[in-house]
Design a binder for these strands. Sequence first.
DNA 1: CCTCCTGATGAAAATGATTTTCAATAAGAA
DNA 2: TTCTTATTGAAAATCATTTTCATCAGGAGG
Lengths: 152, 152
Amino acid sequence: MKNCECPGAEKLHGRFRGCGYRMTAGREAVIKVLQETQEHLSADEIFSKARVINPDIGLTTIYRTLEKLSMMGEVHKLDSGDKRGRFELANSGKGHHHHLVCSRCNRIIDYDDFIDDEVRLLKEMEKKLSKKYNFAISGHLIQFYGVCDKCK
Amino acid sequence: MKNCECPGAEKLHGRFRGCGYRMTAGREAVIKVLQETQEHLSADEIFSKARVINPDIGLTTIYRTLEKLSMMGEVHKLDSGDKRGRFELANSGKGHHHHLVCSRCNRIIDYDDFIDDEVRLLKEMEKKLSKKYNFAISGHLIQFYGVCDKCK
DNA sequence: CCTCCTGATGAAAATGATTTTCAATAAGAA
DNA sequence: TTCTTATTGAAAATCATTTTCATCAGGAGG
Ligand SMILES: [Mn+2]
Ligand SMILES: [Mn+2]
Ligand SMILES: [Zn+2]
Ligand SMILES: [Zn+2]
């Protein structure tokens, strides 16, 4: 595993170990799929792609790995409007970004334009809200809904 | 129906008619439940409360009414983290507000503090994003996640 | 009021994503 | 290599939501 071309893979490898978990072929496949895509994949889509890497992997393992990675804060689970969950790596090449969600085709588009202004406001809000509501804020979600260019 | 004490009920009544739909006892019950609660109810919870008003109503009608109201833009469907949807009237006494979502008990807390600053930024973002991504924005979602006071 | 056309409804069955069960397997520490 | 136990795949179970279908009732037009 010393020549892994997937940036971050080793880190995740270590994080699994650190939590008392084992790194397996299935988990590596899921992580690799997430690292190589630019999209926001569903469990089933991850399954298809992971099968190319590891033909014996089962859908159950996809769900279990995704769940584990979510708990570890390494993947974000998104809601695109259709009923299935969609996932993305929390620490990919893309930095902190938010989403435009198409109500027609459910596609999720990343944006990080003007994100600094957004984050600045968010930080202020967090401070004020957590004090007023005695609520320990650990994350936020911002998305805009509408119709994407392809669907117009 | 002239002495209805539920503000907005008549308006909704009219909106149904205007769309070629009928106003029925079931729909009135669902609307009443939504108007009287301060919480963010699930379909099943709305079902229980609606039954008190109209014992013969079925869960299916709850879903169908909620769906119709959503399409009409009269209710917002929320995602609280547990798997079922939660609903709130779009035009209730509460004005435009956003949410704090407890990751532990899934409770949804309304806030409208500092909402003006948020909305101002949102409007700017909308303008810039819709131009850059050729995306017709029709709504937004902002929520903060964390642990509520009761769960700490 | 009475009729008629259709939209609306409830019960039951179907759906579909996600979870659980369970016996078999394989990390990886020693 | 051994041994403990986390992990796995297949199949069954869940469970919120949707669909089907025969029946019912809103309300426009008489
Ligand atoms: Mn993204
Ligand atoms: Mn609310
Ligand atoms: Zn689209
Ligand atoms: Zn809570």
